[in-house]
Design a protein around this nucleic acid. Structure first.
Length: 1133
RNA sequence: GCCCUCGUGGCGGAACUGGUUUACGCAGCGGACUUAAAAUCCGCGGCUCGAAAGAGCUUGUGGGUUCGAAUCCCACCGAGGGCACCA
């Protein structure tokens, strides 16, 4: 018999547990295993704080509970001791980090032990122990060997305070995750781990983790940021400055004749401007605002080359900006023009004869004669800048060898394609158009860029490409350098690029920041779908780091492009029209229950017709809705439609009801679309002039920035097609490549600091980058006096010549060690593996032990690690799994995040605010058990809670009460419990069991309070006492153990079996049920648990208050839900 | 801006699958024990009106569905977290 004195009993039992090895997990056991993990602490100079307590206590309660349930439970701990804070602390105090770390660990260990944690100390690990980091380095080498660890120079995040590079994940709001200093960009040589190679696996893996909270999965998913789209090339077009002809404006309406270059198209023998491909070609080119001259050449049936050439000289206008296109014999004429001294920008020869011999062996005397004269290639080459040859592989007239001959003579490549018709004589010859357009981008200085120079863009919406009215490059885009000589306003561009580079990421993405940009003058891009020349801009709203660093801007359907286009007055062309969705909505219902649905539809005046599905015979109801019926309709659907039923919109195929749940956005979309469509529909109907109508419609600005799906308009043959479908067809049309992009970036893996694992790499002047042989691991961190960061981008290790210079393991020559160290996240990325076999000298852990303990069954930790440690360690594990080292792909079956503990003032606990609550103090004042239980009692485990020093007394009183009833009741009396106590006892067992299983620790504590109160007031004996102590054991391990021993037990309560509840005891014979009249509670009645509906009605009607409310009223309906509710529904009148 | 979570007494919070809102604890009030205090125990506690019986109102606000809503649906307001020009 004793008074509750926490100090006395806590240290006593802590020693006992350690001596008796109560919490040591056995590797070999018949019992099923449970691997419970908490994020191992970072031993800082300040010691552990409340933030550590929360997951640790939760993990401890859970572990103790599982142990009592009979599981062989491993609940290990270790120290994550490498990293910046330890080093900064050491620098500040002037103590070597290895020494301060040791001290900090000692202190932290004292703390967790004082909290009564049931850690298995035999598995304690320390990431700074060479025996541990040997394996961290070993894993790095596996990454290196697999090609997933690489060195590269790049712009990385640099913290000027901590003087080191940072990973993307370590930058929060543009600031350093550790010290809050704004992060700068710095060009540095860095080691990277190619986490992007695992982007898809990391994403896929999430689907196999049903027991992870959805917010955690969602956050990782967003971080990985997958989007599917296409990479599409936009060809370049240069506008020669010297031509003296005005450039077309920014892609909008253009006056004819103002465009460069112009085309002179010469038909062949038996041809005319109205035959073959010529009308089409002229139309297409003029559509793109090129000037086209297409003379009808004399004597077409038996042409004379010289005569025709003279005709052209007399009748056409040829200058240095003219591209002469000759088809077949027309090509011969084109060359004659040059021989006669005409200067042209370029010549395009289409299937032009050279030898005068034909594949079909027919006689074409005029052609043969002309060819036999030969060509003066010297002159020809002098008079045009560029020659392009396009020959048809299936030509049966002009042999390919003719093309080859021209190619040799002119010194250019021969392009072979399949024409639409042999000899490229079809009505439409896209290859010809393509070639001509390329020819228009002829450079003035050929070395600057070659044919086919293009801007690659990434887009998720290829379906909107007809609306791409300009292209935007990121300021860092490499093509800008190549363009220099073509860009007429290069000074302005360079100035803009310089400004953009100077801005930090924060400035660049500052809130409400207006978009800026500069147009590249002198170059245009060709929209591959419309063939239009569209302006190219540089703007910093496009990021180099994502996609290709260039975009096609579709201002009509992208908010950002829209904003930019409005600001700079760029063309906005809508190409997607939202669908009209109300014309008909189809509902599929199962037969049972649909009658009632139909009746209700009739009642509400909603028209419908019936049909059966041809595929599965299910009954369809086709509904026509008016706008004001949408609401009612959705409600009806929700109510009546059960499983296997859905609502779909005809034409759009959007499934709006899945199972019995109406799509969340149905109403919202319905409203929006209704409004939009009423304005859009007339435009869509009159297809031919949609373009003009929209472009000149004063309302169109408000309408068009619509980023949803719909029907295509202004998109040539795709008009009317569903945007989702059009996506894939358009990619094909423009020769795009389907592409998946991720926001995830490779992990910057080196730090320019001392206190970390050295990267086990040697740089050899002759062998290059050489991994340290595995037998030489670990590469130990040298013990030095000076370890301050240099700030130069070099690690302090670089200054230690003795350590740096080393023999190359490959050639034996002089070489240098890599001097960067690993980031703090390295050691923690695999620590849960080491716990299974912490002392292994030959492997990171024995395969059998890994197989036995993995995966971790439950992992308690903070939300703040979701896209850091938790993502990193999943990455390492997936990699090690692929290497056959780890037996499971996903390391953690369950993840249980916790809310943070705020100070009493609702602010974050911080030294500067002076509101820190130190757990050591609370242990001193109230004892560890009180601290543990109160922390749990504060609120739901996953929610943010504020510490409240006033409330803690309640939990302390509970423990004192348990002490009292144990001392003064159980030790003395052995009373028989009554049925009320029995009921509460078994309900409590059930409640506490389920609450622990679901991490509802706060309500478990309150259930224990209720039980303690009841025991205090009821007769009870040892049996009941022992159940109470067992239930209490996970929460208040010291008190439970002390009182357990006082009841005469020699063994630990923590190894006792967990109590079972018996449902038979939990049944109340009578229940109190609320009685409602029209849904309002008017009283309660006592009913037998098995009371029938008639009993219930009789009893309730007998209640005077109820009777009063029912007096003189007609009862329309009587509702009785046994054990829950009684409700009288009185008719309105 | 987008995504996620949340909003219940004086306070922390409870409420199963829609079924008596406020369990448990803190604070408060009344009482017992005591010379007294502390400790402990018992009882009372949403708001308004009323002596009471009872009535009306009440889960951020406004609507809706339902016999019945803190819980489901819609809109709005507010708090916290994540992402942030990701094409």
């Amino acid at each position: 018999m004793s008074k509750y004195d926490p100090k006395k009993i806590e240290s006593k039992w802590q020693k006992f547990w350690q001596q008796k090895k109560v919490y040591i997990a056995k590797d070999k056991t018949k019992n099923n295993k449970k691997y419970v993990l908490i994020e191992f602490p970072y031993p800082s100079g300040e010691g552990l704080h409340m933030g550590h307590l929360r997951p640790y206590v939760a993990g401890d309660v859970y572990s103790r509970f599982q142990r009592m349930k009979g599981f062989e439970t491993m609940f290990p701990i270790g120290w994550d001791a490498f990293g910046l804070p330890a080093e900064n602390f050491a620098i500040k105090k002037g103590v070597h980090p290895s020494i301060s770390t040791k001290q900090n660990i000692k202190n932290a260990k004292r703390q967790v032990q004082s909290w009564g944690m049931s850690f298995d100390w035999s598995r304690e690990i320390n990431t700074t122990d060479p025996e541990y980091y040997k394996w961290t380095q070993w894993i790095f080498l596996q990454f290196f060997k697999a090609g997933l660890a690489y060195e590269a120079t790049g712009l990385i995040n640099w913290c000027p305070q901590d003087k080191t590079g940072l990973a993307n994940e370590e930058v929060i709001d543009g600031k350093c995750e550790r010290c809050g200093t704004p992060v700068e960009k710095k060009e540095l040589r860095q080691w990277y781990l190619q986490i992007t190679a695992y982007a898809e696996k990391l994403l896929e893996g999430l689907k196999k983790l049903p027991e992870w909270p959805s917010q955690v999965k969602l956050q990782q998913e967003n971080w990985i940021g997958k989007s599917e789209g296409a990479e599409i090339e936009f060809l370049l077009s240069v506008i020669p400055a010297q031509a003296g002809i005005q450039d077309s404006d920014s892609g909008s309406r253009v006056k004819p004749g103002m465009t460069n270059p112009n085309f002179l198209i010469l038909h062949g023998r038996n041809g005319s401007p109205s035959s073959h491909l010529f009308p089409w070609l002229k139309f297409e080119l003029e559509k793109l605002r090129h000037r086209v001259q297409m003379p009808s050449l004399p004597n077409s049936s038996e042409p004379n080359d010289e005569e025709q050439a003279q005709f052209v000289i007399n009748n056409c206008n040829i200058n240095e900006n003219t591209v002469i296109v000759g088809h077949s014999f027309g090509g011969v004429v084109a060359l004659r023009l040059l021989e006669r001294g005409m200067k042209a920008k370029g010549v395009v020869l289409l299937c032009t004869p050279f030898s005068g011999k034909f594949l079909d062996e027919k006689v074409r005397a005029s052609v043969t004669t002309a060819c036999k004269k030969g060509f003066d290639f010297e002159k020809i080459k002098r008079n045009a800048q560029r020659f392009t040859l396009l020959y048809d592989s299936r030509d049966y007239v002009v042999p390919m060898s003719d093309g080859e001959a021209f190619a040799r003579k002119l010194g250019v490549n021969l392009n072979r394609v399949n024409g639409s018709e042999p000899h490229m004589s079809g009505k439409e010859e896209p290859a010809v158009l393509e070639t001509l357009l390329r020819a228009t981008s002829l450079p003035t200085s050929p070395q600057a860029w070659g044919e086919g120079q293009a801007i690659k863009v990434f887009t998720t919406r290829p379906d909107t490409i007809f609306g791409a009215t300009y292209v935007v490059l990121a300021p860092e885009h490499p093509l800008l350098q190549n363009f220099k000589s073509q860009i007429t306003n290069i000074k302005e561009i360079e100035k803009y690029v310089e400004e953009a580079k100077r801005k930090t990421d924060i400035q660049r993405s500052a809130l409400e920041k207006e978009k800026t940009g500069v147009e590249l003058k002198g170059v245009k891009a060709i929209n591959p779908a419309t063939r239009e020349k569209i302006p190219i801009w540089v703007a910093d709203y496009v990021l180099m780091g994502y996609g290709t660093g260039a975009i096609m801007a579709v201002p009509a359907h992208d908010e950002r492009d829209f904003e930019f286009a409005i600001k700079y007055g760029l063309l906005i062309r809508p190409v997607i029209a939202p669908r009209n969705i109300w014309k008909a909505i189809v509902v599929t219902v199962t037969l049972e229950g649909s009658d009632e649905f139909k009746k209700q539809l009739q009642n509400k005046g909603i028209n419908f017709t019936l049909a059966a599905s041809p595929t599965n015979g299910r009954e369809h109801i086709r509904v026509e809705l008016k706008k004001d019926q949408i609401n009612e309709f959705v409600n009806l659907v929700q109510k009546h439609i059960k499983d296997n039923a859905w609502v779909e919109i005809i034409g759009n195929e959007n499934i709006l009801v899945m199972k019995n749940k109406v799509h969340k956005n149905f109403l919202e979309r319905a409203e929006e679309w209704f409004k939009k469509f009423t304005e859009w529909e007339p435009l869509i109907r009159s297809k031919k002039s949609v373009w003009d109508m929209l472009a000149h419609n004063p309302h169109y600005k408000g309408l068009i920035c619509y980023s949803g799906d719909g029907a295509l308009i202004n998109s040539s043959k795709f008009n009317g097609m569903d945007s989702e479908k059009a996506k894939w067809e358009i990619i094909e049309l423009v020769n795009g490549i389907k592409k998946i992009q991720y926001k995830l970036r490779d992990w910057v893996f080196s730090r320019q600091r001392y206190w970390g694992e050295p990267i086990p790499i040697i740089h050899c002047p002759s062998c290059g980058t050489v991994p340290v042989p595995e037998k030489d691991l670990p590469v130990k961190l040298p013990n030095v006096k000076k370890y301050e960061p240099t700030g130069t981008g070099e690690s302090p290790l670089a200054a230690i010549d003795k350590w740096v210079s080393v023999k190359c393991p490959n050639c034996g020559g002089q070489a240098k060690r890599e001097t960067n160290t690993m980031p703090q996240w390295a050691g923690s990325s695999w620590y849960y593996l080491r716990y299974t076999d912490p002392d292994n000298k030959i492997k990171l852990a024995d395969g059998k032990l890994l197989k036995h303990w993995l995966p971790v069954d439950i992992y308690f930790g903070g939300m703040e690690h979701t896209t850091l440690h938790l993502l990193y360690s999943r990455f390492w594990n997936l990699f090690l799994y692929d290497q056959g080292i780890v037996p499971v792909a996903e390391p953690y079956t369950k993840r249980v995040p916790h809310g943070i503990i705020l100070a009493e003032d609702g602010e974050k606990m911080s030294k500067s605010r002076g509101n820190v609550v130190n757990p050591d103090e609370i242990v001193k004042l109230y004892g560890a058990d009180t601290l543990r239980m109160y922390e749990l009692f504060l609120g739901p485990h996953d929610q943010t809670v504020s510490w409240n020093s006033r409330g803690i007394i309640g939990v302390r009183r509970l423990l004192e009460k348990v002490y009292r009833i144990s001392n003064f009741k159980f030790q003395i009396s052995k009373e028989i419990p009554n049925s009320k106590l029995q009921t509460i006892l078994h309900k409590t067992i059930k409640k506490v069991t389920e609450d622990i299983e679901n991490y509802r620790f706060n309500t478990a504590v309150s259930a224990l309070m209720i039980l303690a109160n009841e025991l205090d007031n009821s007769p009870a004996g040892n049996v009941e006492a022992e159940i109470l102590l067992k239930l209490l054991a996970p929460f208040a391990p010291h008190v439970a153990e002390e009182l357990w021993s006082e009841l005469g037990h020699k063994t630990s309560v923590h190894l006792e079996p967990w109590p079972e509840y018996d449902p038979a005891f939990m049944k109340d014979e009578f229940v109190k049920i609320a009685v409602q009249v029209n849904g309002r509670v008017r009283g309660t009645v006592q009913l037998d648990i098995n009371a029938t509906e008639a009993d219930a009605r009789k009893t309730s009607e007998g209640d005077p208050v109820i009777a009063k409310h029912l007096a003189g009223k007609k009862i329309g309906k009587f509702i009785y839900v046994p054990g829950r509710i009684i409700n009288f529904v009185i008719n309105a009148d």
